[in-house]
Design a binder for these strands. Structure first.
Length: 682
RNA sequence: GCCGGGAUAGCUCAACGGUAGAGCACCUGAUUUGUAAUCAGGCGGUUGUCGGUUCAAAUCCGAUUCCCGGCUCCA
């Protein structure tokens, strides 16, 4: 996602950014030449290109790109000067009203987005245009000197975007493009795009047999972990369990569903309902019989004879499994009695019965698939009396949660509807908070080192006053207090962080860890949140030194995020070439001829005895072909065994991507493999 | 959820109103091989699904599902 530019970045906009932004103007000019009536909105430079949002009756498709690019080419050839013009507010308003702004000439219609933009510029701030040829645009700049400085460009895609990014606003057409100083840089970019496609976790995930999506039978966004992917997941879980064990966490296990009361109490239903799967409705066992008895009793008081007569029929209603069944079953009951009786029944019983069943209304018991583990953990906290002596209490679970993400948001493994979270909730006192929070941050850093994640930002999300009572729990003083607590820890620990207002969780401030995959995708990989609200809603307390009950603070943390997103990230991070400890296929043993099969089987047995994912491969293919296939499968270590190796009790080692490493003593090779796995060597 | 585009064999693609085809993968046989493709044969598709137009539909039209690029939202 495009990040908010800091003031610093804006002031010293790089040449690349100036080229991109200038190219947006070139694009706008070209569009106006083809469709003079186009209403331009915004055209900023972004991460590796630029876009321009516009409203236009004609639907621009990639088929229009060559035409637009040809116009753009003409404009860069003309080498027009980008001329900065400062105007008065009155002048700007006039130009917007005559359609001149964001256009090549005056037009019958006002330039409505530009008009709004002018109006939104604070009083007293300078208003500037940039003019290149006939094109006049409201713009703060900066630009390159001339259109010719945009050396190479390409339109990449067309999409729609909500005006001002608000879902309630109409959608505009957004045309994306890239721009560079010269052709060489554009070619480099194109090459990188190819590389990105190759490393895409969706492509590699399928090729390597890591996961499958089966929308037809399982459902969109519900990944099936194949054996190879599961191997990775289990390594990650082992890492988490070991790390957490050493850090004093205790493991718990909770069900995937909970009753409605859980989420009413937690506050998730009001704040989070849209992201949850709709509930399952159950009727309590015995409830139906109770209702039937009640109906019978109501008869007894009034029409005793009738009640007695119809009692056996009413019992048939027990067949009902849900309210929808009542009419059918009722018809069946009526079918079994005579016409006169039916009249009687209708008058005396049916209406009353239906009234009882439907109008009195029975609230079914609702169960929700959990979208988060915290409420379950809160109930574990509540399950036993707690004392300050055993705080902090760190409950950990790789919990599987379900979130009803909007269909358009699903994205491979990165955005799914079933997710396994590296979750934990730390219950502590305010005095313990800083130390606990710090320890969590340190755990993050420890993990990042193991995975070689070097580029990351901790994004500290805080609340907004306007959101109180809507997006956020309405406890202003606690927000301020907790945020200050977090800010202090972050500052003191010297971690690289940025603060973003109005992005907090509904129950407290949070820190999202933003990482960047090699192919340029940015993700929130992990999250660390403070919850000062929900423990109180559940009435969670611990007995303090002074013999009074206190409500604990809760830290939610998930340094490894979810298996889904983390593995998705790792696939792209390693381009599928996992380090030995993570590689789904760690060792593939290849006998050159049948003569070595027995010897190879021994090696495989020895490795598997040490829990190494090793297997033997002997097929009709030539060795070269088998090596090619092993390389393509990204088997980490290949042990190639011919007669010479066997005679010397050796193996020839070949490591994926590194080629032939030569023949080495078998014991040495196996010892090294075991050490590399144990140390989680990169 | 919204806008736009797409869906042909497990994968990559061809056929673009007239009998669905190739390579790889898979299976069988031969070959027993020293570091990224041995040879031969075979299996495999109601062209995402449903409906329409037509003598005839993978191909044209409509709906729907899913996927892709964005937007919005998020771990």
């Amino acid at each position: 996602m495009a990040e908010r530019k800091t003031l610093d970045e804006r002031q010293q906009m790089s040449e690349a950014m100036r080229i991109r932004h200038s190219c947006a103007h070139v694009l706008a000019t070209a569009i106006l030449k083809l469709w003079p009536e186009a209403q331009l909105a915004y055209g900023p430079a972004v991460e590796d290109g630029y876009y321009y949002d516009l409203d236009l009756k004609h639907r621009i498709t990639p088929d229009d790109f060559p035409k637009i690019e040809a116009e753009m080419k003409k404009i860069t050839k003309e080498n027009l000067v980008f001329e900065k013009v400062t105007v008065t507010r009155e002048q700007a308003l006039r130009d917007a009203e005559t359609g001149r702004l964001g256009a090549l000439t005056e037009r019958p219609e006002p330039s409505r987005f530009k008009l709004e933009n002018v109006r939104s510029i604070p009083e007293g701030e300078a208003i500037t245009y940039f003019k290149s040829g006939d094109f006049l645009d409201l713009c703060a700049g900066p630009h390159v000197m001339r259109t010719g400085n945009v050396g190479a460009f390409k339109l990449t895609s067309v999409a729609s975007a909500y005006y001002k990014g608000d879902e309630k606003n109409p959608q505009l057409q957004r045309i994306y493009g890239v721009a560079f100083k010269n052709r060489t840089q554009l070619d480099e970019w194109l090459k990188m795009q190819e590389e990105a496609k190759r490393r895409d976790h969706r492509k590699l995930g399928a090729e390597m047999g890591l996961y499958a999506l089966d929308a037809e039978y399982v459902g969109p966004g519900l990944p099936l972990w194949l054996p190879n992917g599961t191997a990775i997941i289990e390594e990650l879980e082992t890492l988490a369990k070991q790390t957490e064990f050493q850090a004093g966490y205790v493991r718990v296990k909770t069900p995937h569903i909970a009753r409605e009361k859980m989420y009413v109490t937690s506050g998730h239903l009001p704040y989070y309902a849209e992201s949850m799967f709709p509930p399952m409705e159950l009727r309590a066992e015995g409830e139906l019989q109770a209702r039937i008895n009640k109906v019978k009793a109501s008869f007894a008081g009034k029409d005793e004879a009738v009640a007695k007569h119809f009692a056996p029929f009413l019992d048939l209603l027990k067949e009902c499994k849900s309210p929808e069944d009542f009419p059918t079953v009722l018809d069946k009951v009526i079918g079994g009695i005579s016409a006169e009786e039916r009249q009687l029944f209708d008058n005396a019983a049916r209406t009353r019965f239906i009234g009882e069943m439907f109008l009195a209304g029975s609230e079914p018991d609702r169960y929700y698939l959990k979208a988060m583990n915290c409420p379950h953990h809160h109930r574990i906290f509540a399950a036993e009396p707690r004392s300050y002596r055993n705080m902090p209490l760190r409950l950990a679970e790789y919990g599987c949660c379900y979130r009803y993400e909007q269909s358009g948001e699903l994205f491979g493994l990165m955005r799914v509807r079933a997710l396994n979270m590296n979750d934990s909730h730390i219950y502590c006192s305010p005095e313990q908070f800083a130390q606990e929070f710090n320890a969590v941050n340190e755990m993050y850093l420890k993990y990042f080192k193991i995975f070689g994640i070097e580029k990351y930002v901790m994004r500290f999300s805080t609340h907004s006053k306007e959101g109180l009572g809507k997006k956020y729990v309405d406890q202003a003083d606690l927000w301020v207090k907790t945020e200050e607590m977090v800010r202090r820890v972050l500052k003191e620990s010297g971690i690289n962080y940025e603060e973003v207002p109005n992005e907090a969780a509904f129950y407290g401030p949070k820190i999202d860890v933003q990482v960047y995959s090699v192919i340029g995708r940015e993700f929130t990989l992990a999250t660390n949140q403070v919850d000062f609200a929900v423990p109180g809603r559940f009435g969670l307390v611990y007995r303090d030194k002074d013999n009074s009950d206190k409500t604990p603070l809760c830290i939610h943390r998930a340094p490894l995020g979810t298996h889904e997103r983390f593995v998705g990230f790792l696939i792209e991070h390693y381009a599928g070439n996992f380090p030995l400890w993570l590689a789904p296929e760690q060792v593939r043993v290849l006998p050159i001829t049948q003569e070595q099969i027995a010897y190879c089987e021994e090696i495989v047995k020895e490795l598997r005895g040490q829990y190494v994912r090793a297997s033997l491969e002997f097929s009709n293919d030539k060795l070269q072909g088998r090596i090619k296939r092993a390389e393509e499968a990204k088997a980490h270590t290949m042990l190639i065994v011919g007669g010479r190796d066997q005679a010397a009790n050796a193996v020839s080692v070949r490591v994926h991507g590194k080629g032939d490493l030569g023949s080495k003593p078998r014991a040495e090779v196996i010892a090294d493999i075991l050490a590399a796995i144990r140390e989680r060597r990169a």
